[in-house]
Design a protein around this nucleic acid. Structure first.
Length: 207
DNA sequence: GAATAGATTGTCT
DNA sequence: GACAATCTATTCT
């Protein structure tokens, strides 16, 4: 079976021209593909969070904060925003909105599809373990995503999104975002999207 | 499965 | 110098 057949068609550029909340929802079920020198890996997105600066106080771009770190959030939709978490992990985000709007969708969990052995080596876990990709820092390690992907175009041959299978009827869940308590009332907004019942979803959601 | 403590480093104030 | 959109191991139920 060809790779294209296995993964589905590549998502078209206009897929990213959605409001950041709609994009957060639409990304659940899509497939992220990374072809690196180490090998090819692909995984289905099962959990996301939308961040909507400048008004969203949970976003790094809150208040329009534009620094070396947040610059990619202000770029065109369909680019990558990478940032470092607590020193040791990377987080992967899909930029949304028009140039100048600091919007992004954080990918919090994925379900491994291709390259389980490589992911297992990178994560030092068993190939069948949910620990492979059930968190934002874990999935970037498993997929080989790092700082060098900052600002990357998601239509490249190395890193792109392919059409996957959306959650079945009634299986798309929403909840508050994780670990953004510092954001006051914004922390309570149901801007986290996930596939109900999927074992790779990270922190157990409270719907 | 759930709760907890400790690790760890680039970025910004 | 403080903080952070977390991870890991450990210690319970």
């Amino acid at each position: 079976m060809s790779l294209a057949r296995l993964l589905g068609a590549r998502l078209p550029p206009d897929f990213f021209a959605l409001d950041v909340l709609a994009l957060g929802r639409a990304l659940v079920g899509q497939v992220l593909v990374h072809a690196s020198a180490e090998g090819l890996v692909a995984a289905r997105i099962v959990e996301t969070e939308a961040y909507r600066g400048p008004e969203d106080l949970a976003a790094h771009s809150a208040g329009g904060r534009r620094t070396r770190r947040t610059e990619a959030m202000f770029g065109p939709a369909g680019r990558v925003y990478m940032f470092r978490l607590y020193g040791t992990s990377w987080a992967f985000n899909v930029v949304a909105g028009a140039v100048g709007e600091p919007l992004a969708v954080l990918v919090r969990a994925v379900e491994p599809l291709v390259g389980l052995e490589l992911m297992a080596v990178r994560r030092r876990r068993e190939p069948g373990s949910r620990e492979l990709t059930n968190g934002p820092g874990k999935l970037t390690a498993a997929l080989g995503l790092e700082g060098r992907h900052y600002g990357a175009d998601l239509r490249s041959d190395e890193l792109f999104l392919a059409e996957g299978a959306p959650p079945g009827r009634g299986r798309l869940g929403r909840s508050a975002r994780v670990n953004v308590d510092y954001a006051g009332a914004w922390a309570a907004r149901p801007w986290r999207f996930f596939e109900r019942g999927n074992r790779y979803v990270s922190v157990r959601p409270r719907e």
